[in-house]
Amino acid sequence: MALTPAVLGMLAFTLLAFWGVALWALARTLRQEGRKVDILKQQNRMDTYSPKALAELREWIEQNPDDPLVDTARERYNECVEVLRQTDTHYYDWSDEEIARLERV
């Protein structure tokens, strides 16, 4: 059986879809880890949510005030807000305007 263009194309696609994605994920997560270590060396604390994830957490807290886990959620939300206000370097892509608009819940 010869190596047809279709077989070679599938081989290339498979390598890209598996090894490409796996190596991308490995490199990205190790790079992120390096950045987290650098930030923690500087200021000992770090923001824990991205703007999108924190907004979603706030929305959930407001919509579920009686949920048994709402206190944990509130604690995590407020912790992130405090860190964002008190630190200069942020892990996620927060702008000064976004941080200024944040309020504790």
Binding site: T14, L15, F18, W19, V21, A22, A25, L26, R28, T29, Q32, E33, K36, L40, M46, T48
Partner: peptide
């Protein structure tokens, strides 16, 4: 405390271990 879950525990693990099957 500050470790990620979805990228390493989800994407990398599932795709990485399957990549070894491909290899």
């Amino acid at each position: 405390e500050y470790d990620d879950v979805p990228l390493g525990g989800g994407v990398f693990t599932a795709i990485g271990e399957s990549s070894i099957g491909i290899l």
